[in-house]
Nucleic acid binder design. Structure first.
Lengths: 196, 196
DNA sequence: TAGGTTAGTTATAACTTACTAACTAAAGAG
DNA sequence: CTCTTTAGTTAGTAAGTTATAACTAACCTA
């Protein structure tokens, strides 16, 4: 019986990716170290050779998700704001569709209650994202693409609410529809209403 | 030491209300029968005198929430559809604000994974609600209050997404803003964009 | 007011879960 | 080839969690 041993760094990554996948399948609150160990093909205590605690796994998961989520930059673009918003929204939906655990993890109370550093991590990302959309709305209002009465913060809040609400429905309906297509269409309808 | 004994029906109701309150405070996934028992002032096994299993508590909670949520009727109203939608949305936000556990329970994967009858219960309610909004949108389009290009199902999906997305943010931000006021303003902005 | 009904109790079983201790063997460097 | 490092193992613990069994006393009614 030849046991294959992986390097700690690779195994750590494997554990994080497996945790994300399983969290998407079964919900983050139900995920145990035993589940992860079974999926990776290790004994349950072996997990704790790579992570000091279960919270640390979630923290690593959070960092992975955040780093994969926030790569776009808002400022450097010569597109018009409305198209840029739709493009960013599309990217966002793609990220969620590629990693279905994201909404589940993002909205898991269990996780937030257990893991304050992770909660702060996500909150900061959300704020940055909302400010990014608000900046685009401000530009659009200045350029008179959008109605002058529109409040940029409200616009940004609406965009995020629609993303989150739609992603949640997609998640609860067991991913029965194409998130990017459905979400982008809904967003287009909303943005159209903002235009002059 | 005089123990006061309540009638089973009253105690059952007390347990359900306590479970809803605690689920809102600590998240449904973290709620144990011990927590409920402590809050009600009973021993933990006493809970099982009133409910055969923990799932049955959630089922009763779900039925209570649904019954308190779906009392409005869409058809019988001579208001114009746009105002009626806003009124219903306001009511919905009020319900959520009064019972903060609703979004948490509604989106709890733990719950859905554990309790299929309850999931179906909620799914049915969601569908009824979406159809209700779609009907109002259809009326509004026919009456030319709303743009002729608007799809009634899309409008309804947007309304629900904004409700859910905003409620979720409210929940994650520890109810830091007035859900009804903020949510209704955002909805007004969106609906305004739908008008001719 | 005696006596049955039932809402409570304590004790505990059965199981899950995060995590530790002590040992083992695969990989890699000299 | 040997020796050190380290990724893995098995065995076990402490705490928590749902649920059951057996008993007790409060309440209601004849």
């Amino acid at each position: 019986m030849t046991r294959t041993r992986k390097k700690a760094e690779d195994r750590k990554r494997e554990i994080v990716l497996t945790a994300i996948r399983l969290a998407g399948e079964m919900g983050p609150d139900r995920l145990t170290t035993q589940h992860i160990a079974d999926a990776v093909g290790l004994s349950q205590p072996a997990i704790f050779r790579h992570f000091a605690s279960k919270s640390d796994i979630w923290l690593a998961v959070g960092e992975f998700i955040v780093s994969s989520l926030s790569q776009e930059d808002i400022e450097t673009s010569n597109q018009n704001p409305a198209d840029r918003i739709l493009e960013l929204v599309g990217d966002h939906f793609n990220s969620i569709a590629r990693t279905p655990a994201i909404p589940a993890i993002l909205f898991s109370r269990e996780l937030h209650a257990d893991n304050e550093p992770l909660r702060q991590h996500f909150e900061k990302v959300m704020e940055i994202r909302r400010n990014g959309f608000a900046t685009l709305f401000t530009q659009g209002i200045k350029q008179k693409t959008f109605k002058q009465g529109l409040n940029a913060q409200d616009g940004a809040a609406l965009v995020l609410a629609i993303i989150q609400g739609t992603a949640m429905r997609w998640s609860l309906e067991n991913q029965a529809f194409d998130l990017r297509i459905e979400g982008t269409r809904l967003m287009e309808i909303t943005i159209a209403g903002f235009k002059t």
